[in-house]
Design a binder for these strands. Structure first.
Lengths: 221, 221
DNA sequence: ACGACTTTGTGAAGGAGGGCACAAAGTCGC
DNA sequence: GCGACTTTGTGCCCTCCTTCACAAAGTCGT
């Protein structure tokens, strides 16, 4: 089964979401000069069960050797290929407030071929300012960035009120992958993938569990 | 059904994860002086189906009126209560690098009763420095923070290599809710809730979808 | 007071995903 | 070369969600 075939047939979303974790564990192993790894070991490193790991990997193809395990380098390549990490992914950050500037400074982007090629804001007062070695540019540059630089991923770091407008601009310019840090639900066409990262939501979920633990304790100690 | 009862019986995790979204939509409605809302409208605002919304709310109790809808204020209170947001949640941020400082500056915390009561780092060279109006404190303050200030939630913003140690310290001090921004899988006792926020993982998932779209297009245009 | 209408709450069906367990497939010692 | 051993890949089951569809329950106009 070729990578293209495997990619075309549906890999379950839940499995896709775990692949980056496997890739990271494999990269760490490769750094320690480990050549081969069993599903049991890799699963432990990635924090999942070995059965789940094997099933997830089976969606990509059959890259293990029975009785031995997986070749670390090979498997890392295959996962990277399945995720589409063989190419560079130009990224633009929209919204240069506190969060946007922190993201621009963040070195985690470069790690896997994600290159921040532009910092954008619609406020004329910050356009031209320099952040993390780049000039802040106006939103009107978007079309050119998609056309000339292959911009593919937009990161929304605007205040909630401006997020939908920012998303609309990105989509209109042809961006089809959006990472939304604003605390709002974004509407977008079906062929656009929108993912949300929300600190406040995460904290509230933690509060539920903390709260729940306390209640359960009080009721049945 | 009382709130305590509803909370004790399991609310599915998937439903809990959506409650903050409902709460935010309700807060927005309340801000526009909307008094009542139907499941259809609220579901649209929160980006889910109305059937799912009604089922999720039914786990908390029966707070709607048939033929009319939900009272915005009442429902917001009930959800906040279910999430445990009637109390304050003291938060400590561990790791005062780029990310930790950005988080310390971030105003999203205060929004829902989450108070950043301490900024911690194990590096003596930054201890004492002032960030966002607070002095950076040593990790050894943890026990006192839990005992005296009710510290309940730890946010890990250390480099990957230090994240497990930071988590262990938090757990040892009695913190049972951890939000992990480091790109590693944390091991923790079962009664500790750990959630992970990882920019790099999110980007890789977006890359998969962008990549996949392109492959599908090339194969079957 | 009553009937038409609206909207909730929920049983039941359908689907996706995780875990178990084992046959298949390969390695390694002798 | 062969048998014992290890580890993968996967069929099957089971659980948890999501969606559907509708009876129950309430409102509102007359």
């Amino acid at each position: 089964m070729s990578t293209a075939e495997a990619t075309r047939r549906g890999v379950p979303d839940a499995a896709v979401a775990r692949l980056p974790g496997y890739l990271r564990a494999l990269t760490a192993l490769a750094g320690d000069d480990v050549a081969s790894v069993s599903s049991e070991e890799l699963a432990a490193a990635a924090g999942v069960s070995s059965a789940m790991l094997r099933k997830d990997l089976s969606y990509l193809g059959s890259y293990g050797v029975r009785g031995v395990g997986y070749d670390v380098g090979r498997l890392a390549s295959e996962i990277a290929a399945a995720l589409g990490l063989t190419q560079d992914w130009p990224v633009a950050i929209v919204g240069m407030g506190n969060l946007g500037r922190a993201l621009a400074d963040y070195r985690g982007f470069a790690e896997r071929g994600f290159r921040v090629i532009a910092l954008l804001d619609h406020d004329e007062r910050v356009i031209g300012e320099e952040v993390a070695g780049q000039r802040i540019r106006p939103m009107t540059d978007l079309e050119a960035l998609v056309r000339d630089d292959g911009l593919a991923i937009g990161v929304i770091a605007t205040p909630p009120a401006g997020a939908q407008a920012a998303c609309d601009r990105l989509v209109a310019a042809g961006v089809r992958s959006v990472l939304n840090f604003a605390a709002v639900v974004l509407a977008a066409p079906e062929d656009v993938t929108v993912r949300k990262v929300d600190l406040s939501t995460e904290l509230q979920i933690l509060a539920f569990h903390g709260h729940r633990g306390a209640v359960a304790e009080a009721v049945a100690p």
